[in-house]
């Protein structure tokens, strides 16, 4: 599946990195880094990350 984060919306809350640490992480500068393509086996945690994003910046395609 493809992951798109609207970086204009993202406020670096870091909740996605709690929900799906294999896909989203906050770097030492406090900014988001993420995998743009994730394995299908990670769908549940990626959906969880999208659900818990306080600004709803994460879009999953496919």
């Amino acid at each position: 599946m493809k992951i798109i984060v609207d970086l204009n919306l993202c406020q670096d809350h870091g909740q996605c990195a709690i929900a799906a640490p294999a896909v989203f992480r906050m770097n030492d500068d406090g900014k988001l880094e993420y995998e743009e393509i994730a394995e299908e086996s990670r769908r549940a945690e990626v959906e969880e990350a999208a659900d818990v994003c306080p600004v709803q910046a994460i879009l999953i395609e496919g």
Binding site: H13, A17, P21, R25, M26, N27, D28
Partner: peptide, 10 residues
């Protein structure tokens, strides 16, 4: 606190 620490704090 830096967002990178949220997971560790939780």
């Amino acid at each position: 606190l830096p967002p990178a620490r949220q997971r560790e704090l939780r």
